[in-house]
Amino acid sequence: MDEKSVKNTSEKNKQLNNNVQVYDQVNCQKDLATHRTLCAYQKSMTTDTMLAADSKVARSSFGPQVKDKVVIEVKDLVKTYYGQAGETRVLKGINFTVHEGEFVSIMGPSGSGKSTLMHILGVLDTPTSGLYRLDGIDIKDYSEDELAAVRGRKIGFVFQAFNLLAQKTVLENVMLPGIYGKIPMRQRQDKARELVGLVRLDNRCDHLACQLSGGQQQRVAIARSLMMDPAIVLADEPTGNLPTDQTDEVLSFFTKLNREHGKTIVIITHEPAVASYSDRTIVLRDGVITKDGPANKDIHYDTN
């Protein structure tokens, strides 16, 4: 570790201590373990105190379980597509870091490069230039097969289109990453059952994926994304294909994962209501970050 990064780390520690102080100030439990308690706490306050509290929370850009460890580090990230119509610069120098335990949303209008960014974060694609360090490793150093292993072990994907294997059962879908992750059969099955329980589909274990509603399918996808205990869960418009009455349920699972299981979550959306579930929002416009700060919680409670 060089001098500069040591300095960075000590600064981050200071920042984290500060966060804890903020929470103490608003008279919240030191261990705000669950989203439920947070919701109950905020709902119990008057609008005035809530606004006040929000402005205080706003100073902390991190959720309650945020740790020191950096999971995503992106520096001067550029992505250019070379097509018949010439080259398209989709990402024009992106910089941000995500710490372990953060719940981040990436927002922006359609075509702003959100999915492109998510593909790079998920090592499904490689940047044209710039640095991407995932869980401490520079993905540039890895071969195609190693990247596949990295995807399997470090990243859990949740897609807009669910992407379940329609003819497999719920349990088989959840177990799929475990095959490539070489988890023994028994262990894999136990883990899958546990995860299916987590998204409350215990009674659907042996249903085929195609027999489920959209919301249920997305919950299976969330369970699947956790099979290998990934460092981050990446979700691209996870509620984009869902009717509004199923969005809240699906999103509440992301909150649960973050609050109760300490998962790092990056969710991509163009809906402010969805972003409001997160603690921090990065706004992307035309391939550059125009805003990076605490999420606007108002919208979430307005739509609730």
């Binding site: 499904l124 596949a148 994907f157 992407n163 294997l165 799929l176 490539y180």
Partner: peptide
């Protein structure tokens, strides 16, 4: 799509 998904879930080429 299925192949892409399997790759995203960690399937190596071999």
């Amino acid at each position: 799509r299925e192949i892409g998904l399997r790759k995203a879930l960690g399937a190596q080429q071999r």
